[in-house]
């Protein structure tokens, strides 16, 4: 036992110099995980959009960059309006969206059950993890030539690229989410009389659902990237096709307009999935 306070005087620590104290810095905008004022937040958000846009306006108006390289916002707007009026934009948007729905939809249909299998059963993990872990490192765009040889130039090869580009990631992310179901929740369900299938259906799946939607949201962005890549190579409609075609005629304003459309649709998908996630995952708070 250590001797008590009585012989403090003989405590060797008495000879030590006082421990230096550091001054505490004032809180700033960059204090870790600390809310900032609403005004500061709004200002930052507005600036983050206004600064690049202003730079674009100034740069294109000054004539420092030729219009074929950097069209003015006005030119992009009118090119977009022109495409919308002629109806070709609607066709392109629908063609691309349909490919995403088919290719990524198929990937979700395969990857979610497979991910649940891998996250729930060690056997599932042992059987699929090595192959999928390898396959996901193969770039989907590198499969384009192969898929064209296998499936031809039509729709199937484009849908296949989308599928390959998203299915592996979505599987592994789903498996991770499912592995996050607390052990105690599974154990307690058995003690309440649930059987394996019931534990899966009534515990594992509902607990994982918000996380699975998150995975789908992340991979939807990837799907939207892959579809444009797929369309850059040999297609007759779609937003990627429109970009290649505009390039051929040096219509940079049109390329910009298509890029804006792609961005807007992407944000819309993200917002929609966020809303679904918020609704399904309300219990998580």
């Amino acid at each position: 036992m250590r001797t008590a306070l009585a012989d403090r005087t003989s405590d060797v620590r008495a000879t030590w110099p006082p421990l230096p104290r550091r001054t505490r810095p004032r809180p700033t905008l960059l204090t870790i995980r600390t809310p900032i004022s609403r005004r500061a937040a709004t200002t930052l958000t507005v600036l983050s959009l206004a600064v690049p846009f202003t730079a674009w306006v100034v740069l294109s108006a000054s004539g420092a960059v030729p219009a074929t390289f950097l069209p003015s916002p006005g030119a992009v707007l009118s090119a977009g309006w022109e495409m919308a009026r002629s109806g070709e934009l609607a066709v392109d948007v629908w063609t691309t969206t349909r490919r995403v729905l088919e290719g990524f939809g198929l990937a979700v249909l395969v990857s979610v059950p497979l991910g649940i299998l891998m996250g729930t059963f060690h056997a599932g993990q042992a059987a699929f993890e090595p192959l999928i872990g390898l396959l996901r490192y193969l770039p989907a765009s590198a499969f384009i030539p192969l898929l064209i040889i296998w499936l031809g130039l039509g729709e199937p090869s484009k849908i296949a690229i989308l599928f390959i580009g998203t299915v592996f990631f979505n599987t592994l992310m789903t498996a991770d989410v499912v592995r996050g179901v607390p052990r105690s929740l599974i154990d307690v369900s058995y003690t309440l009389g649930a059987r394996r299938g019931e534990v899966l259906r009534k515990v594992v799946v509902p607990h994982s659902l918000p996380g699975i939607i998150d995975a789908v949201r992340v991979n939807a962005a990837a799907a939207w990237n892959f579809v444009v890549v797929a369309e850059l190579v040999n297609s007759t409609a779609g937003l990627g096709y429109r970009i290649v075609r505009a390039q051929r005629f040096l219509q940079t304003d049109k390329i910009f307009a298509v890029l804006v459309v792609i961005g807007v649709i992407g944000v819309m998908i993200d917002v929609a999935l966020r809303l679904v996630r918020a609704r399904v995952g309300r219990w998580a708070g």
Binding site: P182, S184, V188, T191, L192, H207, W283, A284
Partner: peptide, 20 residues
């Protein structure tokens, strides 16, 4: 031979179904 409702179990924390 295995878990069942004839032996109800209560853990220290965290075993409620958070979505229910």
């Amino acid at each position: 031979t295995g878990p069942g409702p004839d032996r109800g179990l209560v853990f220290q924390t965290g075993s409620l179904y958070p979505w229910r």
